[in-house]
């Protein structure tokens, strides 16, 4: 039986079932805190420990699913193309606000983590925390971070942002709807964007622009931002 549980088909089926159940729980309860990814991870981790399956074995088996992350990012080219008109119309506000958001995100998280005494490997892992998981993980790998740690921090940031983002912006007087929408995508990526979609299509579209543009900028700039930062602090 033990060998059966190490079967790749079993591992992949387990992952699908866990996510399916997680989606049902989310739909039934409508609680943002019960994020499907988090619940699915909890279900899988519980099953793995109960069945005494090694995490390494699970990791090997689930690589087939993880493979799809890269093609999924390529596929984001389609919504990007569809938003091009809107992006061109507001090219400067979008580019500049995204640039500011990207730099603020990377620099502040690195400085705070460093100040609190986190080791370099951890700092590198959380540097790209504002952008969507597949992109963040790729960046993390490229700069020498721990990609799975990046994934969980990104998910946590997304959930936090989607719950408190609009409150934070109200409090700090970000009034323009366009600015609110785009910031949601910049700071809280896909999770924030789906929250914006719930409010209105307009917010949703702006959010997805923030998500994509900040994703690209973060992928492009993070290695260089870190290089510049390493002139002042030890990384």
């Amino acid at each position: 039986m033990e060998l059966f549980f190490q079967n790749k088909i079993f591992i992949i089926t387990l992952t699908f079932v866990a996510f399916f159940v997680a989606q049902i729980i989310q739909k039934k309860t409508k609680l943002i805190l019960l994020n499907p990814i988090l619940i699915a991870i909890l279900i899988i981790v519980t099953c793995l420990s109960l069945l005494e399956i090694d995490f390494e074995v699970y990791h090997e088996g689930s690589k087939l699913i993880e493979f799809f992350l890269k093609p999924a990012i390529v596929a984001l080219g389609v919504p990007l193309y569809q938003q091009l008109g809107k992006i061109k119309k507001q090219a400067i506000p979008i580019l500049v606000s995204q640039l500011v958001g990207c730099v603020a995100g990377v620099v502040s998280v690195v400085l705070i983590a460093k100040w609190m005494g986190a080791p370099t490997k951890i700092i590198l892992s959380i540097a790209p925390k504002s952008v969507t998981t597949p992109i963040a993980m790729e960046v993390s790998k490229a700069i020498g971070g721990i990609a799975p740690l990046t994934a969980s921090v990104v998910i946590m940031v997304g959930i936090f942002g989607s719950i408190f983002g609009y409150g934070i912006m109200k409090f700090t007087r970000v009034k323009s709807t366009l600015a609110q929408g785009i910031s949601m995508g910049t700071a809280a990526h896909v999770v924030g964007t789906s929250k914006s979609m719930e409010i209105s299509e307009n917010y949703g579209v702006m959010s997805s622009i923030g998500l994509i543009v900040n994703g690209i900028l973060t992928a492009l700039l993070t290695p260089y931002i870190l290089q510049i930062l390493s002139l002042w602090i030890e990384l």
Partner: peptide
């Protein structure tokens, strides 16, 4: 691919246990 993107990062999420 884009609608199921969240599903694809369940495995890397589990890898956190390592």
């Amino acid at each position: 691919l884009t609608q199921n993107m969240t599903f694809f990062f369940v495995p890397p999420g589990v890898a956190i246990m390592l």
